[in-house]
Amino acid sequence: SRLLPNLWAWFGGAVVLLSASSFLILISRTLELSRAPIADLMQFLPVVVEKTDFGRIWQVRILALVVLWVAWYVGRLRMDRGLSVPVSAVMLAVIAFTRSTTGHAGDHGHFALAAWVDWLHVLSSGIWVGGIFVWAFIIFPMLLKCQHLNRSVATDTFGRFSSVAATGLTVIVLTGIYQAWEGLGKADALWQSAFGQILLVKLALIVCLVYLGAYNRYTNLPTLDIWSGRKRAPHPFSRLPGFRMRNFPNMDDAGNLPLRYCARTVTIQSALGAAIFIVSAILHHAMPPTDIRNLG
């Protein structure tokens, strides 16, 4: 009964951050385009919003944000799981596309393949990492406080999220490879350019996040299955170092300990996810080597 209110409350916080970042992006891009000091910002803001491609796309973003706020308000007020959810999803997709088409991918054209690939990358990243945040800060804390926890329901729900996350990760990897090649142009740019070095940091963080996701799927999830009373053969990965299942002599006496181990892993994942978002923001404003070569 508390899950929906908590989800809508956290979603509202996310919309606040999204709104704030939208205006920060406008300020940053205005200063970049005008090359004016921040004291002259208000002089150039209307010009950028009204007379540049970025400004027109930013207006679409703001319109989508307004609709998103209305959808959130209606959903929060009525605890609605109907129309508010799909409307919010569509608006988030629109906002994601405005980000893609005004970034490096948009240099090839607002509706070019690169923009759509970047859009898929952003959406899948949001589903993967956003889902991790939801589990770390909303669902796991609630499950751990339940007096009469249905172990099977908790295990099945986490298993479904694991499958969704795996799908999102597949899309991230495929689109990320395309984006990396488009931005770098050649392999040695990965370590010889600032863009490539930032990308390496992002890749290192993603590898850590992927490992923890695999640990959840192939170690923690089978443990939860046994904890919920099911018999499940260990995954072959469980024989590898770093994937070995914890031994609980008596699951009935283990309490919520297997769930706590899983929650701890997801909390670490959420910290890595936040770091990846920060590095991605830096990467978004760095100039790819291919653009530098084209300018030269």
Rank of each mutant, 00 (worst) to 15 (best):
V16E: 10
P234S: 14
A274Q: 03
S270Y: 06
G12R: 01
L169F: 10
T155E: 09
N150Q: 15
L144M: 14
L212D: 13
D40M: 11
G106L: 02
H285Y: 13
W58K: 02
A281L: 12
P5G: 07
G159I: 01
A254E: 04
V279F: 00
T157W: 09
A286C: 15
L65Y: 06
G126P: 11
F248R: 04
F161N: 03
H284L: 04
N220Q: 14
K186C: 06
S280D: 09
D107W: 14
L17T: 11
P258I: 01
D40E: 15
R2K: 08
V15T: 04
F237W: 13
L45T: 12
W135S: 02
F54K: 05
G82T: 10
D225R: 12
S238E: 05
L199G: 00
P141N: 13
L295F: 08
L190M: 13
L41G: 07
A233W: 05
S88R: 02
R217W: 14
L45W: 06
H108Y: 12
A136N: 04
L113R: 10
L92M: 10
I276H: 00
R239F: 09
H104V: 10
V67G: 12
A254L: 13
I95W: 01
I198P: 06
P86L: 11
A115E: 02
A112D: 06
M42G: 14
V201F: 02
R160D: 11
V266T: 11
F54H: 02
F248C: 07
L31T: 13
H284D: 04
S193I: 03
L7N: 07
S22N: 08
V210S: 13
R2D: 09
I226R: 13
V266L: 11
I292C: 04
T157C: 07
V117Y: 05
T98L: 01
D40T: 09
H284Y: 13
N6F: 12
L83R: 15
W69N: 15
D253H: 15
L283V: 05
L200I: 15
A14V: 09
F243A: 08
Y261L: 15
L63Y: 09
H104M: 06
L45D: 05
V164D: 00
L68D: 05
Q269L: 08
I177R: 07
A136S: 14
V210H: 06
I292K: 12
F23A: 06
F44P: 00
M287V: 14
V279I: 03
N250V: 06
I57V: 15
R99L: 12
Y218A: 07
